[in-house]
């Protein structure tokens, strides 16, 4: 058992605890923001009604309590003496490629933006072709061909079959 393996085991637990504290903090801020904004909601004017703000207030207060529990629990975990739990690395497991996911998310957002101008067909074909390439299918002919086939299939199912008018794009309107 090497020292680096030991520290990797405890490091993961620490990192997970710190991340949960950050998430708890963010949700806590969301709950506080909801309380602040809901204070501005007007009354319904009905004597028997509790008002528009009551339910968001109750939910926010519950969230604050739960986030406090989550944060306190993880702070306690960080203060505990470190156990030397070691996880053996799986030789067959693939190392997650977070960069690919980040690029995928960014391209999805970009496609959404472009779809307003270029329309469904053009953007979806390009989007699919790029994602296939990103995921390792790097064929010059098959990528665009498959992308066009899937785009057309979806287009005919939704636009023709189900009468859903898909975006044409402001540049082509």
């Amino acid at each position: 058992m090497t020292h680096s393996q030991k520290s990797a085991g405890t490091g993961n637990t620490d990192r997970s605890a710190r991340m949960e504290i950050i998430i708890g903090g963010l949700v806590l801020l969301l709950a506080i923001a909801a309380i602040v904004f809901s204070r501005k909601f007007p009354s319904t004017g009905l004597a028997t009604d509790i008002g528009s703000a009551r339910f968001p207030l109750v939910y926010s207060c519950a969230l604050i309590v739960l986030c406090a529990v989550l944060i306190a629990r993880n702070l306690a975990k960080l203060k505990q003496p470190k156990t030397e739990a070691v996880t053996e690395p799986d030789a067959e497991a693939e190392v997650p490629n977070y960069r690919r996911t980040a690029i995928g998310i960014a391209v999805s957002a970009l496609s959404l933006f472009a779809m307003q101008y270029l329309g469904y067909a053009l953007v979806t074909a390009g989007y699919l072709s790029f994602l296939m390439w990103l995921l390792g299918m790097k064929h010059k002919a098959w990528n665009p061909l498959l992308a066009i086939v899937i785009t057309a299939l979806l287009y005919f199912t939704f636009s023709t079959g189900l009468n859903v008018p898909l975006p044409v794009g402001s540049l082509f309107e």
């Binding site: 979806t124 699919l128 299918m137 899937i150 898909l166």
Partner: peptide
Amino acid sequence: PKSILTPAILALCVVGTYAINNSM
């Protein structure tokens, strides 16, 4: 293959979501 299935799922999500209210 995942390289075809994953993009197809995302495209289906986009079109399916748009179909609810025709809204970007």
